[in-house]
Amino acid sequence: MLPLSALLLGLLALALAWPVPAVLSRARWPRRDPVAALVCWQAIGLAGGLSIIGALLVHGLSPWGGSLPEAWWAWAQHWFTGELPAQPVRGDHWVAQTLAAVLALELLGVLALALVRTARTRARHRALLELLVHPVPGVEARVLDSPVPAAFCIPGARPLLVLSSGMVEEFAPDELAAVVAHERAHLGERHHLLLLPFVAWREALPVLPAADRAHDAVRDLVEMRADDVALRSLPRSAARRTLARAIVAAAEGGAPTGALAAGGGVLTARVTRLLDPPEPLPRWGRPLAVGAAVTLVLAPTLLLLAPALV
């Protein structure tokens, strides 16, 4: 059973490494429901990692037993007793075991490193900005003296929302409210945590086109989600035009590394979506997308455990 599981896990890993991310990144429905699309991207990342590591692990341990728990236990005993399994252990089995361990350690290590590095960068920027920004009456953010319109937030344990003085002076009150609502949406829904695994994925596997594709797609989707949340707090009459004008103007200012900015993502797609909103998904659309994501995560899990259940 284990060789079949390894083959199926390998095919699933191959699908999640290229065609599935390519299809999802080109699809138009994610713009209709960024939340459902974000759930799908998270599932692709998790299932992809489980599949490739699982395929290598299962193939490497296949001579030691008919199921993963049995093979794992026999493999562990081998290092104490020196007893080899009845089936021959070839070189490719040892290579697969080594690659599984290396890949697992690399993915977890890069994720931890990205977390620490991003946290340090944000802490450094926050410490510097706290020396430069100041409160302004009537403005729900700290203000940085700069003539260039800019708006961004530094997430973390002590989040910081920053507007430039140029934005405060030039923007109308409703536009300022739109920008602040957008940034508060990033902080409230902790969008930086949704992005972090894909930053790590791109750093761990830079040669994999899907890593770049997934990172860019998730970055754009969190911006669209923040736009949607911001619209709820604005007067409905001209909320979309107000927010569109604000994010276009804010794009000029940029943002520090590790920050989430109102002008981030693919600006043209966001503005088009605001001014010409797509039809929302049917009522069954989000449950279907979430169900597909759950199935995607369960698939490699079941392939790993199924031989032990038969």
Rank of each mutant, 00 (worst) to 15 (best):
E252M: 15
V271K: 11
L243R: 02
V297E: 00
G265L: 03
T268C: 07
P287M: 05
A308V: 07
A246G: 02
L196Y: 06
L274A: 06
P277W: 05
R213L: 14
V310D: 09
L196P: 07
V207A: 07
R232I: 04
R273V: 04
S233Q: 14
G254W: 02
T242P: 12
L193M: 15
P209N: 08
V266K: 13
G264P: 05
A230C: 12
L243E: 00
P197S: 10
G254P: 14
L195Y: 07
A250K: 06
A251N: 06
A255L: 07
A308R: 06
I247Q: 11
D276G: 14
V248T: 13
P256Q: 03
D220S: 09
A214G: 14
G258N: 09
R213K: 04
D227P: 10
L302C: 11
T272L: 15
W284E: 06
A210T: 09
A292M: 05
P307F: 09
P209H: 12
F198C: 13
V290P: 11
A239F: 11
V294Q: 01
A217K: 05
G291M: 00
V218N: 00
A261N: 13
R273C: 07
A200T: 00
V229S: 11
L274I: 01
R213C: 14
T257Y: 11
R213S: 08
T301W: 03
A251D: 10
L304E: 14
V229M: 01
L193E: 13
A299W: 10
R245E: 07
L274E: 05
L275Q: 04
R236Y: 14
R225F: 07
R219F: 10
A306W: 03
S237K: 12
A200N: 09
L281M: 12
V271D: 05
A217S: 11
P235I: 01
V290S: 07
G258V: 07
L288Y: 07
T301D: 02
P287Q: 13
L281N: 01
A239V: 12
R286M: 06
A289G: 01
L260Q: 05
A200R: 08
H215N: 15
R245W: 11
A244T: 10
P287I: 15
P307E: 15
L231K: 02
R240S: 10
V271A: 13
L267Q: 04
A259I: 05
S237I: 02
S237V: 10
P206R: 00
A239G: 02
D212F: 08
V222H: 01
L305Y: 09
A244W: 13
V294D: 01
T272H: 04
T272S: 13
L296P: 01
V229L: 12
P206D: 04
R219T: 06
